[in-house]
Amino acid sequence: MTVMTGDIATYNFAYLDEQTKRMIRRAILKAIAIPGYQVPFASREMPMPYGWGTGGVQVTASIIGPDDTLKVIDQGADDTTNAVSIRAFFQKVANVAVTTHTRDATIIQTRHRIPEEPLTEGQVLVYQVPIPEPLRFLEPRETETRKMHALEEYGLMHVKLYEDIARHGHIATTYAYPVLVADRYVMDPSPTPKFDNPKMDMSPALQLFGAGREKRIYAIPPYTRVVSLDFEDHPFEIQSFEEPCALCAAEGVYLDEVILDDHGGRMFVCSDTDHCEERLAQGHKGRLAAEDAYAAKEPAQ
């Protein structure tokens, strides 16, 4: 057992006790064996509130080892409160190396984004999931949604997308856009923008999803078909942006809108801060990039 001497309170490595880890590990293996199926698990109370990523934290705590390098992002950013807190949590309870660079990480815990840089074999992407059940807002009863998944009865979801078209003229769902995994289970990709859905398809990385309050774990193995639901005459489309990132001039990436003043001034910047900083360091310059200001910025730690 690992004991961190000198602390008043000592925790097991990665906070969770070993029996809890075994329970979660069994759930993860079954989740990988049944892509897209939500495996119930005995979610524990974590030292952070629900909604802060307790599911993702429990998954990460169960898979992480002393040799792993962890990256945590919140809406693509390494330096926001949620990401900083979770990174600090694992530095404290698991003493693991952390990074902000996507390619250096072995485990990336994410809240609602997939990094712009393509993931590689061996990496694990851990999603924090608020509502794992894609059918929940269409059918509130767990007994019914479970039966619908068992019978592969997903007509209701297509009706929902159709109603989008009837009302708005196009599929208005822009995040938590439902996907069909390995041609069997309809899955909620967590509230990632639909921009990221194509990155889930045939990804070389293992994708694990943890929902702490709802007590569910699910997974997409590497190289697995993930298809966004759509219609022949209304095919799935990702968001597109009219202008490049105002800082690094990147195109074809997901951008956040930043309000600059109360006269309608605004800028669009990369949601993925690591990707943006790397491009700035390479010398790419958008219309609002400061001279050298961002290139010299220290990485979040």
Partner: peptide, 20 residues
Amino acid sequence: ADPVYDAQAVFHALMQANAR
């Protein structure tokens, strides 16, 4: 010898084996 780290290492192998 070290149940915490050794079990993690075996689980990591099992997870990667099931994923691939």
